[in-house]
Simulated assay, not measured.
Amino acid sequence: MQFKTSLSDRETGSTETGIVNLGGVDHFYQWIRSPGSGTEKPITHKPVMVFVHGWGGSARYWESTARAICQDFDCLLYDLRGFARSVLPNTGVESLGSYELGDYAQDLGLLLDHFGLERVYLNGHSLGASIAALFAGQFPERVERLILTCNGIFEYNALSFKAFHLIGGYVVKFRFPWFLSVPLAGRLFMARFLHRPLPDAMSREFLEDYLMADEAAAVGTIYTAVSEQAALEMPQIFANLAIPTLLVSGEKDIIIPAQLGRNAAALNGRIEYLEIPQTAHFPMLEDAGAYLTGVRAFLQSGI
């Protein structure tokens, strides 16, 4: 594959959005393609890259990355169930399953089925990277190459996990719309996640997405993503990945420290590790140039 794009691309891509029901939940999705690529189902022969966002976020923060590579990939973005624009129905949440990572991986498979996508490139971030890794481990025949951004393995500690769940539950419970009226609220909200500041408008979008997240989904995924089960299962998932994988960490990340990414990469010779200096939990936004250069080098390697 020869990439036609560069860091100074002028093409921003055409966008199509819609709703698809996956497992009883209406999911928001978005296609980003180069202009003239068609609608609904790709009519080009370009490969497809699917992006999976992290906890409390939405597909919005992947848009700039997708636009940067849409000359080479048809990019499919979506909001996870219970987050942002993928709103849970009011009736019988119990019938929708739990908030286990496996449920979200199943949604991803249903999304690919809906669009008739047999094999894709997959890029997940944070919680979304755990979902992507789980999916790739279960269905390696459906993933050409895997990119995991800000992810890793951690050791189980009962006391610290309990404290994390308690604090996380309070953080989710005490959310109020008036937060958006506070001057520079978005910047204050994102400070813990970043080493380099983002534009205020983008930080505000992150705060909006966080406020929109369904409480049950937000709390549920805190418990399932940071759990004894995940601490036991994720190392095996990383160790058994059978497809070429790139794991990207931010050097200054305090949410998922880079050491956790290095630990995961060391488990499997198929995992290539990239650590981006002077970035934290959103390296694709804090240093888009370095991130895209690393991703493109990985996608071209071995071709």
Rank of each mutant, 00 (worst) to 15 (best):
Y223I: 03
N157M: 12
K173P: 07
L146F: 02
E155V: 07
A129D: 07
D200C: 08
D113N: 09
D113A: 14
E155N: 12
F174A: 14
F189G: 00
L184Y: 15
P197F: 07
L180S: 06
G220C: 01
H125Y: 03
Y223V: 07
L166G: 10
P183Y: 14
L111P: 00
R204Q: 12
L198G: 06
A132F: 15
M190W: 15
F189Q: 06
N157W: 11
F176H: 13
P183E: 12
R192W: 12
A213K: 04
D113L: 12
C150V: 01
T149L: 05
A136R: 04
F189R: 01
G169I: 06
F154L: 10
D200Q: 11
A218M: 08
Y223N: 03
H125V: 02
S160E: 13
L184A: 15
L134Q: 01
Y223P: 01
N157R: 06
H114W: 03
A201M: 10
E215H: 08
E208M: 10
R175T: 02
F174L: 13
D200R: 13
G169A: 03
R145Y: 08
R204N: 09
G220E: 00
E141N: 12
A163S: 07
V143R: 10
D200S: 08
G169N: 05
A136W: 04
H195W: 08
S203F: 02
V171T: 09
F176T: 12
G128V: 02
T221D: 06
Y210V: 01
L134A: 03
V219P: 05
A191V: 11
T224S: 02
G186Y: 12
R175A: 03
N157H: 15
H125A: 02
L198K: 14
E155Y: 08
F174C: 14
A185G: 04
A213H: 07
L188H: 15
E208Y: 10
I153F: 05
V143E: 11
E205A: 11
M212K: 15
M190E: 07
F174K: 09
A225R: 14
E155I: 11
L134Y: 05
R192S: 11
G186F: 06
G137E: 09
H114D: 13
Y121L: 03
L148R: 04
L122A: 11
E144G: 06
P177L: 07
G220T: 00
E215C: 04
L188Q: 15
F115Q: 08
I153D: 02
S203R: 02
F135H: 08
L122T: 04
H195Y: 10
V172K: 09
A129G: 05
L207N: 02
A129V: 07
G137Q: 05
D209S: 08
E118N: 09
A158N: 07
A158S: 05
G168S: 02
L166V: 09
H195E: 11
Y156V: 06
M202V: 09
A185P: 04
E141Q: 13
V120A: 00
F179Y: 13
Y210Q: 10
N157F: 13
A217I: 00
A225C: 13
F154P: 04
L198F: 03
F161C: 12
V182H: 07
